[in-house]
Write a protein that binds this DNA or RNA. Structure first.
Lengths: 341, 341
DNA sequence: CAATTGTGTGCAAACGCTCGCATCGGAGAT
DNA sequence: ATCTCCGATGCGAGCGTTTGCACACAATTG
């Protein structure tokens, strides 16, 4: 693994000074057009690649953006990461992926350690205490996704609107007794969604109940389904799509007809929501947008274009699919409950 | 964004030389226990974090491992990346994520540019020409996942065995006429799977046909489903799970009973295979294993522990679920075809 | 024609760290 | 008491860049 050609080598070959070669790459305006062309040709021939470490040492920049997230295997994140990667690449940054494995402490630790590792950090669905986040933000520009913290730039998906639409949608379908199936207790999003659902249900005069918290997994959803079946409700709004899919599956397994006897809706509109059976009614999170915007915010901070603690909120829309339908008439409901025993 | 405390600052505070502080971190054996303890305390108090760039400049290492893949949003990859991240983190490396956006040229370009960017590279499902890969491997240790190239370390998932099992499984269920639904033409894996299916089907004396190539997407699968329905076959082996799910959906939509009238199996056993309806019979790729192993191979290379061009092959196993069942009797088949018109 | 402005280059000092080598005191051997 | 050796520490070079400054020369101006 021989070291790659350095500025020095190119300079020697071209018969110019190191500075000139350096400028040929970083400040082309400062240099004679023909000199530059010749240098570039030689550099190319020698396979010269600027040494990032050396550059970073003097500029104090790494050209790296870190993305901190709980679990890349959670289908919610990949589209986000994709968008981040794309946008970062366009702006000349590479992406450092850091998976916290769902451990808040690990997240906090990484948040501390990454000072100097990256020029900026995007923290997705952060679980750390606000203090830890603020502290990190003092050293490195930080943009939060899916959580707001005072004084820190953040992008949240305004699922509140989506949830409201969902409840309206269920109400319009004749449902009068609904349940919110709660996800992780520590989740900011969960509280948002739960509260919003409750508020709208109350407003419309529907019976409303919260079940959970359950683990935000497929089996968590299956678990919830049994509790759901025992409740008097005719529709459920789940914390996220995976739970909703678990509910769907367990309900179907137990002989319930979805949406004939029971309606289910999810949240996030992950790739597989549309592929579920029946296709899942869900709330589309503009997650790719969030990723793109996060990078822009970060890069703006890095370029000194202030926007320090801009707090954005992108709205998601309800996507109606096959898992929600008209509320069963009363006799159907009785029959359903009998069948499920 | 003040620069963080440097070695110099810590040294000054501790009344020792810079070298001593440096060694306190990197070569603890060389230093007095009490000196070290004191230095560590001061460093901690000052919030000292070693500057990666400076370290990298002198050591020639970045402590970065790059992961190059076609599309992180493809559900096949996240578990892989997760395993890579975990293992890399344990070994003191961070992960640079590079998404090629399914463009072979972009992949080649990144492969070229990343010289010096990272200490090693894991290329997943590479689409570049072997020459490009070899060239990159001359500058930076490379491990390939999901493709073998002579002289380069690689880890492939031996889906051949899994495919063989699948065909056996279908044969045992009474199927005598099966189809392989082909994915991207340029994919190494696709050829592997196709050939293996053909061989085993021939061996068992089954009628065999290849359909496609179709795009490896849900709608690609739906497309294939229509062709499938028109064929005389009773079972399909799809290139991957997403296509299989598309097939499942379209078939169900058109009134086919799966697995009653038609059996479908996929490949990779992605998270959602088990959540499909009916749950998808698939071939479990030991993809997390592959990720872990890739990192180990890479780090071994970096540590000079040879293993240059080790070629590993991990075997995946057939996971039988609800989407495959006994072949329909002949009269059922006739009826099915009538119904589908 | 001198004075002024550019325009293109080179020089050399950082940036923060690692590591080979020199130094130095003290313990053990002779 | 002298010599040796070893463990702990300091010195200083060098890693490949960027960048402020100085300089040379040409072009423009009065």
């Amino acid at each position: 693994m021989a070291r790659t050609a350095s500025l020095k080598a190119v300079a020697a070959e071209a018969g110019v000074s190191i500075s000139t070669v350096s400028r040929a790459f970083t400040r082309p305006e400062l240099i004679g057009a023909d000199t530059r062309k010749q240098i570039l040709a030689i550099a190319d021939r020698l396979g010269y690649r600027p040494n990032r470490s050396a550059r970073g040492l003097v500029t104090g920049r790494t050209a790296l953006l870190a993305v901190l997230l709980p679990d890349i295997a959670n289908p919610f994140f990949p589209p986000l990461v994709r968008a981040v990667e794309d946008t970062a690449y366009e702006k000349g940054y590479s992406v450092l992926l850091m998976d916290t494995d769902e451990h808040p402490e690990r997240e906090s630790k990484m948040l501390r350690d990454l000072a100097g590792q990256a020029d900026g950090v995007i923290v997705c669905s952060p679980r750390s205490r606000a203090g830890v986040i603020r502290e990190a933000a003092e050293r490195t520009p930080v943009v939060l996704v899916n959580r707001a913290v005072d004084g820190i730039a953040s992008i949240t998906c305004r699922t509140r609107d989506g949830i409201r639409q969902t409840v309206d949608h269920l109400h319009a379908l004749g449902h009068r007794d609904i349940v919110y199936v709660s996800g992780p207790a520590s989740s900011w999003s969960d509280r948002e969604r739960r509260d919003s659902a409750r508020r709208q249900a109350r407003k419309l005069g529907m019976a409303f109940e919260v079940l959970g918290p359950y683990p935000a997994t497929f089996s968590g959803g299956m678990l919830a389904a049994d509790a759901l079946a025992a409740s008097g409700a005719t529709a459920a709004v789940a914390f996220d799509d995976i739970m909703a899919m678990g509910i769907l599956r367990r309900l179907t397994e137990r002989g319930f007809d979805v949406p004939g006897q029971f309606s289910v809706s999810g949240c996030d509109d992950i790739l597989f929501a549309a592929m579920a059976y029946p296709p899942l009614t869900s709330i589309a999170s503009p997650i790719a947008d969030a990723g793109r915007t996060a990078v822009r915010l970060l890069v703006d901070q890095l370029d000194g274009l202030i926007t320090r603690d801009q707090q954005l909120s992108l709205s998601g829309e309800l996507v109606v699919r096959g898992s929600t339908g008209p509320a069963p008439r009363h006799d159907e409901r009785r029959e359903a409950r009998r069948a499920s025993r």
